[in-house]
Design a protein around this nucleic acid. Structure first.
Lengths: 206, 206
DNA sequence: GAATTGCGTGAACAAGCGTTCACTGACATA
DNA sequence: TATGTCAGTGAACGCTTGTTCACGCAATTC
């Protein structure tokens, strides 16, 4: 049959993931997430948790994966904005900041666990961010004709600046977010100028 | 008298702080720090903890303050390196990376609590990092004759890049640290070039 | 020398935690 | 229709947690 049973299982699994997400907030991080509370919010007995995940750690890694998916969604959305024309930098930063505002919990998780206390978590988050950087490198090489080396330096710097500003944006009110966005745009322009100047300097030397 | 009593109190207070530091590691963060364990390591009864701090939170904020002190030490050390001559960027980044290696626990605390779950903590860490940025702004204005506006953009970008790289360095082996250091130096040079180019562009427009 | 202050203590508390176990009952299979 | 599978259960476990309380005893004050 259609697996009415498997469907139900998937449903409670999603309920657990959603419950965990809901409990993540500015005051209450992954480390202080409790199996019993998550189960309670998902509407199942604590023991049933084990039918879906071996550990809280396994749940956590699943959450990080979801965060990675979200980041990829963000990339797609950014590309669409860029395709519309206009300033690439402005479009990207604006999209990123909007995304942070709309997916606060998941970004908080990613940012927190990036320097968190589980090696597996850190690696998982690093992997997602690296994927993000790699996409940016490809763009810089393909569209802007940078050497791979310079593109990598530039992309890494951009990602560091943007994610760091994103972290600050989590706590910020709208006005502060606006300021952060403009600041980040100006900084990325400086980086772009610097990379351009570096490219020219390298060419002259040839 | 000389306060043999007050001295003893200060001594156990230091023991508590030290014990808390010791328990901070890559696997065990502030959030999962326990009053009882800290007291145990400090060699006092759990109840005695309250003679020195009202909360674990108060202990935590003290740790952050210690971290701030450490950062200021770092600034001083950087200035000494710069005074010796040679590349300012290289000297600063190298000093920073060494400092991260030698004060792993405290940096981990700062980086973690920067996007941690206590508002007070976040504010405390932000305050320390802002102090760091402010010093850099002053330097850029005084020594390199940047406008305050451009200096602030540049300094903020630099701090974001350096602290982010520092976070990665916490987990890295020596070879990776070396790579990170060189990468960061190259990135800061790009930023410096970009800021310089921006300054010239602004002047031309006058 | 007597009175006071205050650091450190051990017992006790209620609460919460993760995890185990044997069990139920609806769905899947044949 | 009979048999097997497995998501969900409720009781129970051993532990750790933060916090309170009244108390002892050494350093301090008068």
């Amino acid at each position: 049959m259609a697996g009415i049973r498997a469907a139900q299982k998937e449903k409670t699994r999603r309920a657990l993931i959603q419950a965990a997400m809901n409990q993540l907030s500015a005051e209450h991080g992954y480390a202080s997430l409790s199996l019993r509370e998550v189960a309670r919010e998902a509407g199942i007995a604590p023991t049933s948790f084990y039918r879906h995940f071996q550990n809280m750690e396994e749940l956590g890694l699943t959450l990080v994966d979801e965060g990675g998916l979200t980041l990829r969604q963000l990339l797609r959305q950014s590309r669409q904005q860029i395709a519309k024309g206009g300033s690439i930098i402005r479009a990207s930063v604006t999209t990123f900041m909007e995304f942070v505002s709309n997916n606060t919990a998941i970004f908080r998780l990613l940012l927190q666990e990036k320097s968190g206390n589980s090696r597996d978590f850190r690696l998982a988050v690093t992997r997602e961010v690296e994927h993000f950087t790699a996409e940016l490198v490809d763009y810089l090489v393909a569209e802007q004709k940078f050497t791979r080396e310079l593109a990598e330096l530039q992309a890494d710097a951009i990602v560091r600046i943007v994610f760091s500003a994103g972290a600050d944006a989590l706590d910020a009110d709208n006005k502060e977010k606006q300021r952060l966005t403009e600041q980040t745009i100006a900084q990325l322009r400086i980086v772009a100028r610097g990379a351009e100047a570096t490219r020219l300097a390298a060419k002259t030397q040839e």
